[in-house]
């Protein structure tokens, strides 16, 4: 069981992630923007962060960069949500320190597949 933080300003997306991951045995924590997400990440150790890129207060890229500066987040996988199929955004997020991505819209099994790729029992 892993502790997974989902950061998205859209409650419906967060809810969807929770609904998919909790039955799979994960503990899902939510944050509504990057700043809240960072605060939650600082509060304790996480196994995975799933973040949107477009968010108020602190966007996903800023969050990823900030997380990568935390000693506790070294090697922690970070996945971002994107609607882009082009590479620009992906490269930007990757160079910010992201581990992988999930393309919106996604199906529950796609989400589980990515989480399974990055979180090992």
């Amino acid at each position: 069981m892993a502790t997974i933080l989902t950061v998205d300003d859209s409650p419906s997306i967060r809810q969807m992630i929770k609904v998919v991951l909790e039955p799979a045995g994960h503990n899902v924590i939510e944050a509504g923007d990057g700043a809240q997400g960072l605060a939650k990440a600082q509060a304790g150790k996480l196994d995975l962060v799933i973040t949107d890129l477009n968010m108020p207060v602190m966007n996903g890229l800023e969050l990823i960069r900030a997380l990568r500066k935390l000693p506790s987040a070294v090697g922690m996988p970070i996945v971002f949500l994107t609607t882009e199929s082009n590479d620009t955004v992906k490269q930007e997020a990757k160079s910010a320190g992201a581990t992988g991505w999930i393309t919106k819209p996604f199906k529950p099994e796609q989400l589980l597949a990515v989480v399974g790729k990055l979180v090992r029992a």
């Binding site: 069981m1 502790t3 503990n27 924590i29 939650k40 509060a43 304790g44 150790k45």
Partner: peptide
Amino acid sequence: MNDGLAGER
């Protein structure tokens, strides 16, 4: 699991 996130639960 850890204590820092206790507020969540």
